[in-house]
Design a protein around this nucleic acid. Structure first.
Lengths: 220, 220
DNA sequence: TTGCAATTCAAACAGTTGTATGAAACTATC
DNA sequence: GATAGTTTCATACAACTGTTTGAATTGCAA
């Protein structure tokens, strides 16, 4: 196998450009110029533009997923097959939040790329995301073991809300900073993690209030 | 004035196509074919493709925002200038959820368009979303009045999490259905609204746990 | 009617895009 | 050092994009 030089130069350049300028306005020609390689090299090494994007995203995804599962497994082994719900949730949202938030100037290219992927969600990426379900099922299983009295529906909703808070906070971090006039410190990642985890934990452990139909505010 | 026929035909066709196929692969030629008008009509009536998209999104946005504020104002007047936090949150997330969830076959074109706008988030739409902050500030104000003992930071985080749960649930409704194997019923919109509202309310009213250490969180 | 502005239309424009080609330059093996 | 396989390169291609043009048509007022 020849040196991966060209191949990895393309990957690095593409990730950097996508992270900085988004998928919308980065062309193959931009990428090869940044990488200092020939235009045809992309199709030679990756087959197509979409496959290049897919490879970038898959690489970063499996990294995050591996980290999540490592935290989860460690916690469950320590607890004899059953981990506290807070720890499970922290394993779920921690790696993503830590990767994508924090001081901007020290945010990695990989993190900025993943933020873009979350915001712009281009077709090849969406296709991959849909295969992420098996991974989430493992967390659903751990959560069910942690809260055996909880019904499945509540487990899934709790999982959904935990991911919602983490991802939305990443996506809209800029807006939250502006809205709060800087009062919400998104650089304090551990604080963000604890906020998300604590709310998600409450959602999953709160006693069910048998809410009847809520009194809707007068319509019309 | 002249009959708006062409103009509104373009708007309707564009909204329908964008809702069905996303922004990525709908061209001006698709739109004018669907609308039965000439290609140049888009630039004549709207100036550019981006301005057409912007007008579509602005129209639907102000509709939702108006509805939100109507619910909020009604609730505050009824409570003498101070509404319960649940009601405020319901006014915040209810209109959006009701517009975008529910049985698919009876989901309006407008709703499906807004879902697309939320998922794909094309540049002209993002520009408009950034101006939505003033609107959110009104809700932050109402929440502060409802929870005067709560610090601003917590208010903003609660607002952020409420929007997170609502928007993420809309964006990923398909995935949640698949993950839960249909157990989470996203057609029961009022149930979804109550779940989001109740979790957001807990997030905003729970007593602060002064744990700053992320390693160990006191259970219960 | 005539005049004038608003609108519609077919056609072309100018640019960009991702991809394909076939020759040239390598690299390693015999 | 000839050979075969891999990789690079300049260039062309074909298709599609949003936009513009300028002439035709329409609608309405005087």
């Amino acid at each position: 196998m020849a040196s991966d030089h060209t191949r990895s130069a393309i990957l690095a350049a593409a990730e950097r450009l996508y992270a900085d300028r988004g998928f919308g306005d980065v062309t193959l020609r931009d990428i090869v110029a940044e990488a200092g390689v020939n235009l045809a090299a992309v199709n030679y090494h990756f087959g197509s533009k979409d496959e290049l994007i897919a490879e970038l995203f898959v690489t970063r995804s499996v990294q995050t997923n591996r980290e999540r599962l490592r935290e989860l497994k460690a916690a469950e082994e320590q607890g004899g097959g059953r981990a506290p719900i807070e720890v499970i949730l922290r394993a779920l949202v921690g790696p993503t939040l830590r990767g994508c938030l924090g001081p901007e100037n020290q945010r990695s290219t990989a993190a900025r790329f993943m933020i873009r992927a979350s915001i712009e969600s281009v077709p090849p990426i969406r296709r991959i995301k849909n295969r992420e379900i098996d991974h989430l099922r493992k967390f659903a299983g751990a959560m069910r073991r942690a809260l055996p009295e909880r019904c499945d529906v509540d487990i899934y909703w709790g999982l959904n809300f935990a991911l919602a808070m983490a991802h939305h906070t990443i996506r809209e971090s800029e807006r939250l900073t502006k809205l709060s006039e800087g009062k919400c410190d998104l650089d304090d990642v551990e604080d963000v993690v604890e906020r998300v985890v604590s709310v998600a934990t409450m959602a999953l452990t709160a006693r069910k209030t048998e809410t009847k139909a809520p009194s809707r505010v007068a319509a019309r």
